[in-house]
Amino acid sequence: MTASVPELADQTAFITGGANGIGFAAAQHLTTLGVTVAVVDVQADAAERAAAALGEHAFAVPADVTDLASVEAAVATITARSRGVDILINCAGITGRTGIKSHEVEPADFERVWRINTLGSFHTARAVLPGMLARGYGRILHVASIAGKDGNAGMLAYSASKAAVIGMAKVQGKEYAGTGVTINALAPAVVRTQMVAAMPPEQVKYMTDKIPMARCGELDEIAALMGFIVSPASSFTTGFTWDFSGGRAVY
């Protein structure tokens, strides 16, 4: 038996990387639906600015997703202000150095990308799952990438880390199916964000040229999809990797 499903407007969301990019867009969308959002970011000042911009339904929680103790402290802070975390969206991520071949990748860079993109998603899910299971309800969304499905040449660390995130969502979705907690991944192609703007133009062109829509995805488009995935209405889909690729992914 699962607990009664809470209304979306009564829920609290934990969004990593929530100070900018896809994370901020998701936070902005959810606050318009009445969700209380914890903007979780390693940069405390950026998290505070984002929360202030979002208004009364948001507050900042600085945390380092690569550090399990920091993540657990963030969950405790959020739980002290609410009944607990109803929604977890993992948006914190970096590309690492791009536009290079595998033999040119520095081990330290590979490890840094892996720790933020993959280990960070593991830490946050591990920290929120006990509370979700106790209440019989929860939504976890790991933001992966089309690179995790296809592999982007010149982006070994990023592609490998996002493939692992997709694998994690598949395992977790199966493990917790039927508990009231759904766990999915989302695989965007190129979305117009600051992270993409900072990449070499030739790397962005390489990725965008693969998109049948022949353009980047926009933040409001991906935020709307994320809002549905983490809503009570999306109750049967779990362990799935949602597409946001402009037709690039057909599987």
Results as ranks from 00 to 15, higher is better:
S4H: 10
V5Q: 03
V5F: 05
P6A: 13
E7C: 08
F14E: 06
I15D: 09
T16S: 13
N20A: 15
G21M: 00
G23L: 15
A27F: 08
A27G: 15
Q28I: 00
H29W: 02
L30M: 09
G34E: 05
V37A: 09
A38K: 00
D41T: 08
Q43V: 07
A44N: 05
D45M: 06
A46I: 07
E48H: 05
R49N: 10
A50I: 02
A52D: 14
G55M: 07
F59S: 07
V61F: 10
A63K: 03
A63C: 03
T66K: 09
T66I: 09
S70K: 10
A73L: 12
A73D: 13
T77Q: 14
T77K: 13
T79A: 11
S82I: 10
V85P: 02
D86C: 05
I87T: 04
I89Y: 08
I89Q: 03
N90R: 06
C91Y: 01
C91K: 00
I94T: 15
T95H: 04
G99T: 04
I100M: 11
I100Y: 01
H103F: 11
E104S: 05
E106Q: 04
A108P: 09
V113W: 06
I116E: 08
I116Y: 02
T118Q: 11
T124M: 06
T124H: 01
R126Q: 15
V128T: 05
L129M: 12
L133T: 08
I140A: 04
I140L: 06
L141G: 06
H142G: 11
H142I: 15
V143M: 09
V143W: 04
V143N: 04
S145R: 04
I146R: 10
I146M: 14
A147I: 07
D150P: 00
N152E: 09
A153R: 08
M155G: 07
Y158G: 09
Y158V: 14
S159V: 08
S159Q: 09
G167I: 10
G167S: 10
M168Q: 06
M168E: 05
K170M: 12
Q172G: 10
G173S: 08
Y176K: 01
A177T: 03
A177I: 03
V181K: 04
V181W: 05
N184V: 02
L186S: 10
P188G: 05
V191S: 10
V191I: 15
R192T: 06
Q194G: 07
Q194S: 11
A198T: 04
A198M: 12
P200R: 14
E202L: 08
K210V: 00
C216E: 11
C216Y: 03
C216K: 09
G217L: 09
L219R: 13
L225W: 07
G227W: 01
G227N: 11
G227K: 04
I229F: 12
T238Y: 05
F240H: 12
T241Q: 10
F244W: 03
S245G: 14
G246L: 11
R248S: 11
A249F: 10
